[in-house]
Design a binder for these strands. Structure first.
Length: 802
RNA sequence: GCCCAGGUGGUGGAAUUGGUAUACACGCCAGUCUUAGGAACUGGUAGAGCAAUCUGUGGAGGUUCGAGUCCUCUCCUGGGCACCA
């Protein structure tokens, strides 16, 4: 009989489901394998999506064979813009679109034979789920970690709508091409910076097994810096500005100061500014630019001097000019900087444009050419002359603190998390605004605050969420005083539901609490988390932040959610570009599975190359692994069923070497070499006319995590086992059997290979040396030369140095 | 500009601690079988050379008995962050 994937794959998928192979939770040892759950888009999966899921499935099945209970769930991160845009266009509820997309995804995923426990399927848009997303928000609000603030959004004045960064094209509205403005909106913000230190330090924790690459990216994103904040007085005024710097040692080199266009001081001292109209114009223009524009372009630095205003350097008492310039950002630090052109590149460039003084205060560079930004020895700095930068920073910070005009301060690049969206398709924020009581949390027992049906999903035109137009929903009573009040109409960002979903899988039906304490202890932390590197900073930081908060309020027992994190490399299209409808280069997994079978698909994606590296898809490549499975299938014909023990030392040795290698490779995510090792074994087995049942059974077992359907078919139907192969055990590696009787020793002369010798495994160094020197091929090079040295590497080589 | 990965046959890639460069697979070439082949099987396949041999892991140096692997410089590609004070 021929190997026909079509005939066996469905059958075993149903069998596993019926026998509960994917929900065998009663074992002592636990393993929690998690995939980053997908956003179900309308177009369905392409072959790139399942790569990570296949890997977690291989590991899950491998862990089952090693006696673990494995939790391997799947769900849907289903709030988000595409569904909302579809709803606007078709005037239909995004629910409908979402449900349809989920059905498509699920059907596609089911073809792969994953061990998902679908009883635990979750959906972030399900009120029973987002009830708890809202609950977490309430807790954050109660603890003072959620606050209201004005934060700018990208605003298209012609569409009268807020835009996501994705909707922008070179700073213009993607739809109508108008210039996008920054419009301040009332927003909910989460005080993530309060957790900055813990988020940073726990990255180095012993029980975190993350790739360096991702750890590094998070560290840079958090961006901790130690410096000082001090005040600079405005001359002839009570007003002052606060500046922050990590290079207080360069303070004697200040030749001017700069404030961001949005800095409040400008408004306060406007009657002092003699060129105010010019300044006002500059600010207006700056506000039109998006943050991206202001920060991204390698553009010329612009700015306007505030005429009539001077500030005072507290160290030198020198009087210097003040500028407004958009290279200083309002949202970072204090929104004002002391400018030291000699020792800061941006200040240098700005000073050059404006013709400002450059004073060298740290030795080491040629400041007539460019800024010297490294540490050095101080000059032109009065009593601090001769100190190193490091010493000066200490002394100067001491002085500022003593004088009471500054203090040491730790700063973070990371900002608080703007947590509201003016959209329909998101979790309603469970807050009620009362004129008397202010913002009041919706009482817990009234959760979830469900999304009401609306007729129109279009934006309101004021920038508010479409929910603002549903008066019967908005108007309510204050839970505190009973007076009339209004509901919050902002909704949560997509990141909300995905920041805690791994906890819900553990206890998906619990309507009393987010997760039961016992189950949480049983499964957390997640042992293995696999997903794309694009989530290295945002999703993974948000989830860690919420997890730490949940730890603080006693909901979870671990400080970190994900023990091991591995990132999956992209699958590019055959033309080397990203797979996209736009390039018409998308490969659909349904077609691949129909032609080659799910096992070939799984095997191929694991064989393509190193797991975390991006690789181009090749349909021709799938044929290769299919051929391999065909060979495995055909080996059945060589099994001696009632054998009186076929002993084949060579095959037995290779089998055991392969067992070891495949096991180690799975643990280390080196699936490609695991598969090539199995190919080598199968090629060797093909050369034998007879094979023992044992060796074949071992091959099938180690293959089963990768190609579960064909393995189960052979295991039960051909080898006559009565139970699933996934209730069997991973084979024991036998070092005695694996040992070779003979080995090849390479003989080199001056590092060049001249001869290869087959010798017995127990031969001594002297014996090898003797044989080598007698070899004709070696003699050609050694004849008449003096042998200076002979280097011997046991089991590998002999190098004769002449 | 900064940070992180990478650069190995025609292609994807392998090489665990510095020890046989190119495993495994694709593709290609030749052959066997076949009415036929986009099937199966066998053999070949880094380059040059009849050969012995020589040259080869982006480039240039270096350390070493020995370097894809370590060091210095340099070029290129991909990804991330970006006027972060």
């Amino acid at each position: 009989m021929k190997y026909e994937p079509k005939n066996i794959e469905k059958k075993w998928q149903q069998y596993w489901e019926e026998k509960g192979i994917n929900k065998n939770y009663s074992r002592e040892k636990k393993f929690y394998a998690l995939d980053m759950f997908p956003y179900p888009s309308g177009v369905g999966l392409h072959v790139g999506h399942p790569k990570g899921y296949i890997a977690t499935d291989v590991v899950s099945r491998f862990k089952m064979l090693n006696g673990f209970s494995v939790l391997h769930p799947m769900g849907w991160d289903a709030f988000g813009l595409p569904a909302e845009n579809y709803a606007i266009k078709n005037k239909s509820n995004p629910n409908v679109f979402t449900a349809k997309s989920i059905a498509t995804y699920k059907k596609q995923l089911e073809m792969f034979g994953f061990t998902y426990d679908w009883d635990r399927e979750i959906n972030t848009t399900d009120p029973e789920y987002y009830k708890w997303t809202q609950w977490i928000f309430l807790k954050l609000f109660e603890k003072g970690l959620a606050y209201e603030s004005n934060a700018p959004i990208n605003w298209c004045p012609s569409c009268k709508t807020g835009l996501s960064n994705e909707d922008l094209e070179n700073g213009k509205c993607e739809r109508c091409g108008s210039d996008v403005e920054q419009k301040p909106m009332r927003q909910w913000v989460l005080k993530m910076t309060e957790y900055a230190d813990r988020l940073l330090y726990d990255l180095d924790s012993q029980d975190l097994d993350w790739e360096d690459m991702i750890v590094q990216q998070q560290k840079n994103w958090i961006g901790r810096s130690e410096g000082v904040q001090f005040e600079i007085k405005i001359k002839d005024s009570e007003e002052k500005i606060e500046v922050y710097t990590t290079r207080i040692d360069t303070v004697f080199g200040i030749t001017y100061a700069v404030v961001a266009p949005e800095h409040e001081i400008i408004e306060k001292i406007k009657e002092k500014i003699s060129n105010y109209s010019e300044v006002e114009k500059y600010i207006e223009d700056a506000n039109k630019k998006t943050n991206l524009e202001r920060t991204e372009l390698q553009k010329e630095k612009t700015g306007v001097k505030l005429e009539g205003v001077k500030v005072v350097n507290p160290f030198t008492k020198e009087v210097i000019p003040l500028f407004v310039a958009d290279y200083v950002l309002g949202g970072y630090g204090t929104g004002a900087v002391m400018a030291v052109p000699a020792h800061d590149e941006r200040d240098f460039e700005f000073a050059f444009k404006q013709g400002l003084d450059v004073i060298e205060v740290v030795l080491g560079g040629i400041i007539s050419e460019k800024a010297f930004t490294e540490d050095g020895i101080l000059i032109n700095s009065d009593k601090y002359d001769g100190l190193t930068s490091e010493q000066a920073r200490e002394k100067m910070a001491d002085w500022l603190e003593k004088e009471g005009i500054g203090k040491r301060k730790v700063n973070y690049k990371m900002r608080d998390w703007v947590y509201s969206r003016q959209r329909y398709w998101g979790e309603p924020i469970p807050i009620i605004h009362c004129e008397k009581c202010g913002a009041v949390g919706v009482p817990e027992e009234q959760l979830p605050v469900t999304l009401p049906d609306v007729e129109n999903y279009e934006p309101t035109g004021t920038g508010e969420s479409p929910l603002a137009n549903i008066h019967e929903w908005v108007n309510t009573t204050c839970p505190k005083c009973g007076g009339s009040a209004k509901r919050e109409t902002n909704t949560m960002p997509q990141w909300g539901g995905s920041s805690w979903y791994y906890l819900r899988y553990i206890d998906p039906k619990n309507d009393k609490e987010l997760v039961s304490k016992e189950l949480e202890k049983e499964w957390m932390p997640v042992d293995l988390y696999v997903g794309g590197a694009e989530h290295a900073t945002r999703h993974l930081l948000y989830a860690r932040f919420w997890h730490k908060f949940l730890y603080d309020i006693g909901v979870v027992s671990t400080t970190e959610p994900f023990k091991k994190l591995v990132h999956v490399g992209l699958i590019m299209a055959e033309d080397g570009r990203k797979m996209s409808k736009r390039w018409n280069n998308v490969v659909n997994p349904d077609d691949v599975i129909a032609e080659f079978g799910a096992d070939s698909m799984r095997l191929y994606e694991m064989f393509m190359g190193p797991f975390s590296q991006s690789v181009a898809w090749s349909t021709a490549g799938v044929k290769g692994v299919r051929k391999f499975l065909d060979k495995v299938w055909k080996l059945q014909g060589r099994i001696m069923n009632h054998e009186s023990g076929i002993k084949n030392k060579k095959i037995d040795s290779l089998v055991h070497k392969t067992i070891k290698k495949v096991g180690e490779d799975i643990e280390n995510f080196r699936f490609n070499t695991a598969i090539s090792a199995m190919m080598i074994l199968v090629n060797a087995m093909e050369k034998e006319s007879q094979l023992s049942v044992t060796s074949y059974e071992l091959l099938i077992t180690i293959l089963s995590p990768f190609a579960p359907h064909i393995a189960e078919e052979i295991w039960q139907e051909k080898l006559g086992n009565k139970q699933s192969i996934f209730l069997a055990s991973w084979p024991q590696f036998d070092a005695d059997l694996a040992r070779d009787e003979e080995m090849e020793i390479v003989v080199q002369v001056n590092g060049k290979v001249r001869e290869r010798l087959m010798v017995a495994a127990d031969v001594t160094e002297d014996e090898i040396k003797e044989t080598a020197l007698e070899s004709e091929k070696v003699k050609v090079f050694t004849e008449g030369k003096e042998i200076k040295k002979v280097i011997f590497v046991p089991g590998k080589l002999l190098n004769i140095v002449i």
